[in-house]
Design a protein around this nucleic acid. Structure first.
Lengths: 226, 226
DNA sequence: ACGTCAAAAAAGATGCATCAAGTATCTTAT
DNA sequence: ATAAGATACTTGATGCATCTTTTTTGACGT
């Protein structure tokens, strides 16, 4: 999962960054949670320097923000921001799906089907964490198949921002969260770019509905203290 | 130009980051150029810490890379990567243009026209730096008009990567580089999203042609030493 | 001349001390 | 008992020392 495209010479800061990215994408942070450099340093068993480095990168990704100069927090998500991210995803994942449909091999298809099958089982078993991970894995597979690393990185950053807001939505959504993945695979099999794009758009709009509702009804500026 | 959406409490690291971003986008670095933290610290009159912070953020943006653990450089651009970035820009700037066409005010139009006029003059005067800056300003104005800050940031990062590769193309291109900006403004005036999108796509594909040719004929892995 | 290898210099990574600014706590006067 | 002010603590930013690895360089042999 934590496959980073570029560089990253297993520095401590990259290890911390990768770990925090995973935590973010898995919804292990809640909006409003506060991060303390010294605490994280203790948890990771490093000095504060690599933690600062990782935090800075995450802030650059807008995955965390400095509410005040000394108050590092997981930001809230305004509804307008979520809608914007969704619109961007539609364009970008649409492009990925179209391109993937043109070049997908049977091995690619099998990999997607394997993820989808596992995802079903995870959802049926009520395993929220595994469910979100596999859903993400499915989405990230398309730009990978398409050979679009830049696009993949952009999407990764968007998911970093969405992570804290999708936590419980997947359990509530049940299998409906991944129902739209089937038409995607069918379109790739037929090498039908337009159908692939439409299918992934359906997934983003319909499958993501519980997430939007959560955000709309949630606090814009999350309460103090977690 | 250096308007950063979020946070950024005028820390030293943010000052350095903003300065390096400007330098990158203005083409003041060449692919293959090496950056040294201690040298930059001397230039900025700070210690190495804020420089490291800024460099780390830039590396996270993939605007600079660590060729080896101790060799920080402006990366080269493979043709495939440029084509991918172009495809992404088409989708994203297309979305920005469509949205902008729906909401543009007459004040927005006037601002765009002012930039375009200035850009003409800069090109006629052979002022490469100002030409590229105003061209960028035009492109960044669309997501701003559209009210899409996330999209704006994504584009900013892409431009950070393109910056070192567009240096001399604008002089060679002459007015052809901005000819396609007129139809964009016309479409916004008519509140015609489809036309606005098509116009900006034309600009990206045709206006960017000299850039692609430069990249195709340039070195993939740039020569040592600048 | 050219290539090889080793010593020296360079350079980023890490850790840590200090600073400044904000926060919480405690004291004290009303 | 409450509120205002002072004190101590928290916490990120900055600077700096040190460590390790890389890069450079120059001497040496072919």
């Amino acid at each position: 999962m934590a496959e980073f495209t570029t560089l990253e010479h297993e520095n401590l800061n990259s290890v911390v960054y990768a770990a925090l990215c995973d935590a973010l994408m898995q919804g292990r942070f809640q909006p409003g949670d506060r991060l303390k450099i010294r605490d994280l340093a203790e948890q990771f068993g490093t000095s504060v320097t690599p933690i600062r480095d990782a935090i800075l990168r995450l802030a650059n990704d807008e995955a965390i923000t400095f509410r005040s100069p000394r108050d590092i927090r997981i930001p809230g998500m305004a509804e307008s921001r979520y809608r914007e991210i969704r619109a961007i995803r539609i364009r970008l994942e649409g492009l990925a799906a179209e391109t993937a449909a043109q070049v997908a091999t049977s091995a690619n298809i099998r990999a997607l089907e394997a993820i989808l099958r596992e995802n079903e089982q995870a959802i049926d078993a009520g395993d929220r964490l595994k469910g979100t991970q596999l859903n993400q894995a499915f989405h990230f597979m398309l730009p990978q198949i398409a050979g679009l690393p830049v696009l993949n990185n952009i999407l990764r950053r968007l998911w970093l921002q969405m992570g804290p807001h999708i936590s419980d939505a997947y359990i509530e959504g049940g299998r409906a969260m991944i129902d739209h993945h089937y038409p995607v695979i069918e379109a790739l099999k037929r090498h039908d770019p337009a159908a692939a794009s439409m299918a992934i758009v359906d997934d983003i709009l319909l499958g993501g509905k519980p997430i939007l509702e959560r955000i709309v009804h949630g606090e814009e500026r999350p309460a103090r203290r977690a």
